[in-house]
Design a binder for these strands. Structure first.
Lengths: 206, 206
DNA sequence: CCCCGTATCAAACAAACGTTTGAAGGATAG
DNA sequence: CTATCCTTCAAACGTTTGTTTGATACGGGG
């Protein structure tokens, strides 16, 4: 009785992602997760060691790719001579929005990420900072160059807030159906432009 | 051993607010809450009946006043002939920001509210909608008049997203120390202006 | 064939959860 | 003083939690 083309590990990650998005990390129990994945309860601790490790694995599965794409997009922006703040923000936002609109659980992951932001959990923050902080620091350097009027401390908490607001917004965008008559790519382009302007306004303020 | 000028009920509400903000509704246990409030465990069910009722009471304590102030501010805007979208947004935002900057647990409450938004919990959404939805609908009517290019459905989910992003942002603002050399009121005025522009951009887009 | 490492399973573990109970204070009114 | 009501208390209730255990099945290599 496996009833799926995916391995136990993959099914666990998928079910955990969906249930963490819906009920939170504390609210979704391992029994719910393993039942949704059609897997024995003990499989979580066998494959991941603990619930906390499962949570981290769910993040890793998506964030490794997301940060790689953000890093590559930022590198391309930096190689361009006349790069603007909007270009850098697009390098930050577009990969995330594409992930949010991904049909295979992307929306669920984005809602989960938004919850993680809202939770301000110390353990989770350290995990994210340790594993993906270096890419955020690359962006901070570029933003700092483009916004010389901001002292570093001010820039950092603005980035923190803007990133959180963006994540929250993208999580909700994933829930919303596209307006009828709008193609997928047109919708995405419109949304990217919208969010970039939104974020730029927040960062450029005096 | 009460060690406080406040009643058991008030101490419970305060401790619950702080711990729900920090660990979430499922993550903060009644034993943590009652310990922080220096109160017996059974006091929660004696005074509130259940944990869910305690959660609702924590919301009620702040939201009754917040919605009254929003309603009054909107009425004042409507009585003015040349009212703009920014005026209406300010009526929505300023009371919330003042709550977020309130020194007696306002920041904690705002973080709790942001978590409630991120959680998309059905029970909580119904409670908030039932008790405070009428004020939001008043705002929606005014916004609809000021943004005739948006069909009602589009306006509603934009409002939902904008309100969520604002709540999240204000929750973080509450955590951030004011920049040195800026007075409290100057900081607040700057932030209101900033957030109003932020939200207006999101609503006015085509 | 047997062996061994991997994977799955039902069952049990202690701990923590929200909630309930019944008795004990403590103040106020008759 | 007694009686009454509201409040607090320690203790226990039955569930549910994350985790661990030991047995069982599977499957290629010696």
């Amino acid at each position: 009785m496996s009833a799926s083309q995916f391995s136990t590990k993959q099914r666990l990650l998928g079910a955990a992602e969906a249930l963490f998005a819906q009920h939170g990390f504390a609210g979704a129990s391992l029994r719910q997760v393993t039942a949704a994945a059609n897997v024995n309860l003990a499989a979580v601790n066998y494959h991941f060691g603990s619930k906390d490790n499962l949570i981290e694995a769910v993040f890793r599965r998506r964030l490794d790719a997301l940060n790689a794409r953000r890093h590559a997009a930022l590198a391309k922006v930096e190689s361009k001579p006349g790069a603007t703040l909007e270009d850098a923000l697009e390098a930050f936002i577009r990969p995330a929005l594409e992930l949010a609109l991904d049909r295979h659980g992307g929306a669920a992951f984005m809602r989960m990420l938004a919850r993680a932001y809202a939770e301000h959990d110390e353990r989770l923050r350290r995990f994210l900072s340790d594993n993906y902080g270096h890419v955020l620091r690359e962006f901070a350097v570029v933003f700092h160059r483009m916004l010389p009027h901001l002292v570093k401390e001010e820039l950092y908490w603005r980035l923190d807030i803007v990133a959180g607001a963006l994540t929250y917004t993208m999580a909700d965008f994933g829930l919303i159906k596209r307006r009828a008559g709008t193609s997928e790519t047109a919708h995405r382009e419109y949304t990217v432009e919208h969010l970039v302007g939104f974020a730029a306004a927040g960062l450029r303020a005096p």
